[in-house]
Amino acid sequence: MIKVNEDLQFKLINKDTKTQLLICMEEPAELIQAISKVQRYLNEGVINPKYKSSLAANLCEEIADVYICLKKLQLYFDISDDCIQEWIDYKEKR
């Protein structure tokens, strides 16, 4: 299970909500860029092994940033894990 310091994230978003919300908008864009880089190195559905490790490391970092932001938004708007799980279940059934 992935753990985020919820106390820290709650303090950050309540201390400077405007900036934290801006960060929560910017981080997914950085993940999109990382995914775009992966696509550039695809050749017939296979990533060049020479670049796979660095691409994976970059993706990992950006996924972590987005995960933190998602948790921050969840805490700020008091959204329960159950609520999110209900939406996941619904969307996966489609």
Rank of each mutant, 00 (worst) to 15 (best):
M1Q: 11
I2K: 09
I2R: 14
K3Y: 13
V4N: 05
V4Q: 05
V4L: 05
N5R: 10
N5E: 13
N5C: 05
N5I: 15
E6L: 12
D7V: 12
D7T: 12
L8E: 10
F10Q: 12
F10C: 06
K11V: 14
L12A: 13
I13Y: 09
N14R: 01
K15H: 11
D16M: 08
K18F: 15
T19A: 04
T19K: 05
T19S: 08
T19F: 07
T19D: 01
T19Y: 06
T19R: 08
T19C: 08
L21R: 03
L21E: 11
L22C: 05
L22D: 06
I23K: 15
I23V: 14
C24M: 06
C24V: 04
M25D: 10
E26H: 05
E26S: 13
E27C: 04
E27V: 02
P28W: 05
A29Y: 05
A29W: 04
E30W: 02
E30S: 05
L31T: 00
Q33V: 07
A34W: 01
I35C: 09
I35E: 07
I35Q: 10
S36Y: 09
S36R: 02
K37E: 14
K37G: 04
V38N: 13
Q39C: 10
Q39E: 03
R40V: 02
Y41I: 07
L42E: 00
N43F: 13
E44R: 08
E44M: 09
E44P: 00
G45M: 01
G45C: 04
G45L: 01
G45Y: 01
I47P: 00
I47F: 00
I47C: 03
I47M: 02
N48Y: 03
K50L: 08
K50D: 10
K52Y: 03
K52H: 11
S54R: 03
S54E: 11
L55A: 01
A56E: 13
A56W: 06
A56N: 03
A57T: 05
A57W: 05
A57G: 10
A57C: 00
A57E: 10
N58F: 09
L59N: 03
C60Q: 15
C60P: 14
C60F: 11
C60Y: 10
E61T: 14
E61H: 08
E62P: 09
E62R: 06
E62F: 03
I63D: 02
D65E: 09
V66H: 02
V66K: 04
Y67V: 03
Y67E: 07
I68C: 02
C69E: 01
L70W: 07
L70E: 03
L70I: 12
K71H: 06
K71D: 07
L73I: 09
Q74S: 02
Q74H: 07
Q74D: 02
Y76A: 09
F77S: 10
F77R: 01
D78V: 11
D78H: 09
S80T: 15
S80Q: 07
D81Q: 09
D81L: 14
D82M: 05
C83N: 07
C83Y: 07
Q85A: 14
Q85M: 11
Q85H: 12
E86V: 11
E86G: 02
W87C: 14
I88G: 06
I88Y: 15
I88T: 04
I88D: 11
D89C: 03
D89S: 14
D89Q: 12
Y90F: 15
Y90H: 13
Y90N: 06
K91E: 14
K91A: 14
E92G: 12
K93G: 11
K93M: 13
R94M: 12
R94W: 15
R94E: 15
